[in-house]
């Protein structure tokens, strides 16, 4: 039998070269989706194969890797991916945002400001920001080529006409370096401002859709909006029940059968760091009624 043996960081060198070339072009053309010959990875498509391939292509023995899903190091998929790299690359791992050199994420940007020596790798399900307006790749590619983004503005404006607001709460489209409209992956729009002018390099990998794109450090990233309806990041009117943070994105936890709710930081490292610095929240869950608290 052809007994399987695997390379450092799983991918074979030819695959890494192909991904590395795509990453370089992605950095040179900020926000443009570079097609790449995504491989079948040993985890399912849609579970972070794009992010995993990007991470595998950049990771080295001196790196410290952090993996988060929904802001947490402890969710099952984050653990599974972290274990994968521990096993295949023998790389050091950490849960500390500050200590990490490479952070792979699904759906969140850490609360702590990222630094110049760090790379943030996003897992992306649908990289095409125009996909739900125009399902055809041939069409969306033409729109990007011409910088023709009327369609997405029409969609956002229709929201305003219908709901009084832009009804996009996550994967909120941005314009990168005043040229390409880009999907930030399904991060909450709360996180959008963190992408702008970041000191860290941001790489995006979409495995199933076979695209890699990037935001270089210190690059303008503007959330699409209108003069009379400016972009506003959503935030709970609450603070974290564990660390009392007022500036973090919160998860809502249902604590009993009566529907009591508690709000806690989605970024577990941020929350734990604050707690160890002596910050304490109310630790209370309060009964919650939609009408009263909406």
């Amino acid at each position: 039998m052809n007994a399987p043996t695997y390379n450092f960081a799983y991918l074979d060198e030819q695959t890494k070269r192909m991904i590395r070339r795509a990453i370089l072009k992605a950095i040179a053309i900020p926000g443009y989706q570079v097609p790449f010959a995504s491989r079948e990875m040993p985890m399912p498509y849609g579970w972070g194969t794009g992010g995993v391939q990007v991470t595998a292509a950049i990771l080295g023995p001196v790196d410290k890797l952090k993996v988060i899903d929904q802001g947490s190091d402890d969710t099952t998929n984050a653990i599974s991916i972290r274990k994968f790299f521990e096993k295949t690359a023998g790389v050091a791992v950490t849960t500390s945002t500050g200590e990490a050199t490479v952070i792979q994420t699904r759906h969140r940007i850490p609360e702590a400001t990222l630094q110049a020596h760090q790379v943030l790798v996003y897992q992306v399900p649908i990289p095409e920001p125009l996909r739900f307006l125009e399902p055809r790749e041939t069409e969306t590619r033409r729109m990007h080529a011409l910088g023709e983004y009327g369609l997405i503005h029409v969609k956002l404006y229709e929201d305003i006409a219908r709901f009084g607001h832009i009804a996009t709460a996550y994967a909120y489209p941005v314009k990168v370096n005043a040229r390409y409209v880009m999907d930030p992956s399904p991060t909450p729009k709360f996180d959008n401002p963190k992408m702008n002018n970041s000191a860290a390099l941001q790489l995006f990998g979409a495995g199933r859709e076979k695209r890699i794109y990037a935001i270089p450090p210190y690059t303008s990233v503007v959330s699409l909006d209108f003069e009379d309806h400016p972009f506003e990041p959503y935030k709970h009117k609450a603070c974290c029940a564990l660390c009392n943070a007022e500036d973090s994105y919160l998860d809502e936890i249902v604590t009993d059968n009566k529907g009591s709710r508690m709000f806690v930081c989605s970024d577990t490292d941020y929350c734990e760091t604050r707690q160890s610095d002596g910050h304490r929240g109310s630790e209370n869950a309060a009964p919650y009624a939609e009408s009263a608290n909406a």
């Binding site: 849609g46 579970w47 899903d69 929904q70 919160l250």
Partner: peptide
């Protein structure tokens, strides 16, 4: 993969 990925947590987007 993509159909089954709906099993993964989506707390953050859902909250949004």
């Amino acid at each position: 993969g993509f159909v089954e990925h709906l099993k993964l947590p989506h707390y953050v987007d859902f909250q949004s």
